[in-house]
Computed example of a mutant assay.
Amino acid sequence: MSRFTKKTALISSLVLPFAFGAAANAAQITEWNYTVDNSFTSATFSSGNGSVTEQDNELSWGSNSIRSSVSIDDVSNPPVLVTNNAEGVRGGTFVHNNQPIPAAAKRLQAFDLTSTLSLSARTPVESEGKGPSALPITFSSFFTETYNGNGCFEGSASVCDDIFSLGNPEFGGINDNGNFEFAAPSFAIDGYNYTVFLEIVGLSTLTGEQCQIANASANCIGFLTREGEVNRFESNFRIISSAVSVPEPGSLALLGLGLIGMGVASRRK
C-alpha cells in the first residue's frame, strides 16, 4: 500500500465514526432555576435646592418636603424558567413614585439600571447545575421632569406626565407584545446556543412630540409616568435556544467514502 493510500485510509477511519455520530447532540436544557439582582448605577442629578439619595435599589430627589423616587424590587420566590416559553418569568418591578417637584429643587436626570441574571440548569438531570457566568443587562435611561401645569403634551394622562427615555435602544427591539426587549450575549452548553431577553412592560416607541420634550431622537423608546401617582412597570425574562450548527452526517460520510475511493484509485494505478 502506498504512503498516500495509508494516509487516506487513516483519515477515512477518523471521519466516518464522526460522521455517523455528529447528529447526536447532548440534551437541550429545558428548565432553569434563576435569581435576579437589580441595581442602579451612574445616576446624575440637576443642581438646586433639597437633596438626593442614592442606593443600589432606590434613587430619590426633590425638596425637603416633596420628594420623588425610583426603586427596583427583586423578584421573590422565582418560578422555574422554561426554555423557549414566550411568556417568560418575572425579573422585578420598577417603581416611580412621581410627585410634583418644585422647579428650584434637585431632580433626577439619568441613570443605569442593571439586571443581572444567574442561571442554573434544572432539567434534564444530566445537565443539572450547569449554567453560564452571570448575565448583566443594562437599561440606560434619561429622565425628564416635566412642567406641572396646563397645556400638557399629547398622550399625557396627568398634569403632566414625566418621561423616561432609553439611552441604548441599539441593544434590543420591539417584540410581539409591543414592548422593548434587551438581548444578553448568547452562550453555549453541550451543543446548544442560549439567548436571554429582558422585557420591560410598557417600554415602547414614543410619539414625536414626546421624544422632542425628552430631548431624544425621533422614534425614541421610553415610557410615561403619571404625576402624583406610584407608577409600576414589570420586567420579564425569557430564554430561547437552538442547536449549534454542525456539518451534516451525510456530507461527512460522503467525504469519508470519497477519500476511500481516492485511496483505491491510487492503489490501482
Rank of each mutant, 00 (worst) to 15 (best):
I101K: 10
P102K: 07
A27E: 15
W32A: 05
D74I: 00
R67L: 08
P100D: 12
A27T: 15
V95C: 11
V75P: 00
A134Y: 01
A110I: 09
T53K: 11
T114E: 00
T30D: 14
S69C: 05
S63V: 13
L81P: 06
L135Y: 02
S42W: 00
S47H: 04
S63H: 10
A86F: 00
G92W: 00
P124R: 13
R122Y: 04
P79N: 02
L117V: 12
A121V: 12
R90L: 04
L117N: 02
D73S: 10
V36D: 05
Q99N: 08
G88I: 02
Q28D: 09
P132A: 08
N57Y: 02
L59I: 12
P136N: 03
S127Y: 14
I29M: 13
T146D: 07
S39V: 02
W61L: 11
N84M: 10
A27W: 12
T138F: 10
D74L: 01
E31L: 13
D73G: 08
V82W: 03
S47M: 10
V75Y: 01
D74G: 03
P79K: 00
L108W: 07
T123S: 14
T138Q: 08
K130R: 08
S118Y: 00
V95N: 06
L113W: 03
S65L: 06
Q28V: 14
T41Q: 06
F139Q: 11
S118E: 14
D74F: 02
T30P: 09
S115P: 00
N64V: 05
E126M: 13
K130G: 14
S120E: 14
S69I: 09
D112G: 15
V75T: 06
P79L: 04
S120K: 15
S133F: 10
F139G: 07
D37E: 07
Y34T: 04
T146P: 09
A43Q: 05
S141I: 10
E145S: 14
T138E: 03
I66F: 11
G92M: 05
S65A: 08
L117Y: 03
N57I: 03
N85K: 04
I29R: 07
S76V: 08
T146I: 15
V89L: 12
A103E: 14
D112Q: 09
D56P: 00
F111S: 11
D73T: 09
L119I: 10
P132Y: 07
P78A: 05
W61M: 09
R90S: 02
R90D: 02
G129R: 06
T138M: 12
S39G: 02
L135I: 07
A27Q: 15
K106T: 03
S69W: 09
S42K: 11
S71V: 00
Q55L: 06
V70Y: 07
S141H: 06
E128Y: 09
P79T: 04
T123R: 13
Q99Y: 13
A121H: 14
L117H: 06
S51N: 12
S42E: 03
G48T: 08
Q99A: 14
L119C: 04
N64P: 07
N97T: 07
P79V: 09
Y34R: 05
Q109I: 01
F142D: 12
T53D: 05
R107G: 15
E128I: 15
